[in-house]
Amino acid sequence: MNALLPMPRLRRDLLIAYLAAAAVIAQVIEAALPGPGPWFKPGLANVFTLVAFLRLGWSAAAGVTGLRVLAGSLALGTLFTPGFFLSLAGGCGAVAMLAVVRFLPGLGPVGISLLAALAHMAAQTAVAGWLIIGHAGIVALLPWLLAGSWISGVLNGLLTFLILEQLDRHRALLTGP
């Protein structure tokens, strides 16, 4: 499941762009829908980051995340608002966790997604506490926020698994020119 694919540079770059576009679409759609609860945000855009990570590597996942944060903020009109910095912080936290899990053997999409989701939320809470709210008391919310992230992390991991099953049969991901 965690096999990186060798492929021509152009095809790789195109796949990164496609995954980033899909992530932006998921982010915009999700922002328009009512959330299921105060502590729970599905974070479907992260599925495409995970697909990039598991098939194209860490740098591709970082690229998808960066493009998604920037283009998603432009599409939603939230560039340089507090929401943008929260999104950026979450993305950086998740990408940093992905850099770590590269060295953890035996993890599949579910475990990787879960750890990335928790790192995403922890980074967002830290930035919210220290830069936006300006009070460390927001850390008291962390158990509830992390509980929501735990659920979304597992669900997104399962979704990533199902997408990879389909994607691995697609000729765009087959090796060779």
């Binding site: 035996g106 579910v110 879960l114 992390l146 735990w150 597992v154 399962l158």
Partner: peptide
């Protein structure tokens, strides 16, 4: 069945440890 098929033993270990940590921190908070 999907969870069993999609997750590795390491995944399930991570799920258990993180869930326990979140519950404990929620209860103590």
């Amino acid at each position: 069945a999907l969870l069993a098929r999609a997750s590795t033993p390491m995944d399930r270990l991570v799920m258990g440890i993180t869930a326990l940590a979140i519950v404990v921190s929620g209860v103590t908070a």
